[in-house]
């Protein structure tokens, strides 16, 4: 699962990290939308090539490359299965573009998640007029993912100590072995959620309607520049794709 690392915030100082989360959200969505609009190899490669300098600007090329290595087996899977099973004319060409599209999509969203701290994300949501309770719930959920992982390991230990053999037996036995892990994990999570709720209420959560914030996000001139230019690119691409049509050389396909 190492390819998920590309969606994990890394504390760093870079041009990308300093931008406002909202402008990066626009950028990510535009990049993802553009890669969804094409099914041909050359335009997708162009999107991909445009994304690389942005990852470099976030000083995260190393991490990105590592994640893509982790993704490699999934990409091979996508290539092989689609080539063998899809009913289109040029199956290899088609599945190659699917694979490039997957990489481009992941890279687009990783631009956002790599460079936005969870606290900033909830602050951005709040300043986008999402209700505080929802924004807070979302950042709590993100905050508790690693805790849940640790909990899962502790539960596995406790069950192994009782003689449950997690990695033995046939498929059905292994699936049944998940029950002693999943049930405590759910129960522990519910119990924790209830006690967190109680402790938050006893510390006055939701006591006043209008909250104030110590740190407010500021949408600076670079953020405007980024958001507006992203939108312009999006409009241009939509115009070319749907009203003008791509030039012939961009529609090139592999012969099989």
């Amino acid at each position: 699962m190492s390819f998920l690392e590309v969606f994990q915030y890394t504390r760093q100082d870079s041009i990308m990290h300093r931008l406002d989360p909202r402008s990066k959200l626009v950028l990510s969505i535009v990049c993802a939308a553009v890669s969804m609009m094409f099914m041909e190899i050359i335009p997708l490669l162009m999107v991909f090539i445009c994304l690389l300098p942005m990852i470099a600007a976030a000083k995260s090329l190393g991490r990105w490359a590592k994640s893509m290595k982790g993704l490699a087996s999934l990409l091979v899977f996508v290539l092989v299965f689609n080539t063998l099973l899809s009913p289109v004319e040029n199956p290899l060409s088609y599945s190659l573009s699917l694979a490039i599209r997957l990489v481009a999509l992941m890279t687009s969203f990783s631009l956002f998640f790599l460079t936005v701290q969870p606290d900033q994300l909830s602050q951005a949501l709040i300043q986008m007029r999402v209700k505080f309770e929802f924004a807070f719930a979302m950042s709590m959920a993100m905050r508790y993912v690693p805790t849940l992982g640790q909990e899962a390991y502790a539960i596995m230990d406790a069950q192994r100590a009782r003689g449950v053999e997690l990695d033995k037996g046939n498929l059905i036995k292994r699936i049944r072995n998940v029950i002693p892990i999943i049930v405590p994990l759910i129960i522990v999570s519910i119990r924790r959620a209830l006690s967190i709720a109680e402790s938050m209420e006893s510390r006055g959560f939701g006591a006043s309607e209008n909250r104030t914030y110590m740190e407010m996000l500021r949408f600076g001139k670079w953020d405007w520049a980024l958001a507006l230019s992203s939108l312009m690119v999006l409009i241009l691409v939509i115009y070319v794709r749907f009203f003008v049509g791509l030039p012939g050389w961009m529609l090139w396909n592999l012969p099989f």
Partner: peptide, 22 residues
């Protein structure tokens, strides 16, 4: 030896009961 083998001889009860009740 595997944990399951050792568990026949050595029983261990953890701090948090919620980690094993299911």
């Amino acid at each position: 030896m595997s944990v399951a083998e050792i568990a026949r001889e050595v029983g261990l009860v953890f701090q948090n009961p919620d980690h094993q009740l299911f």
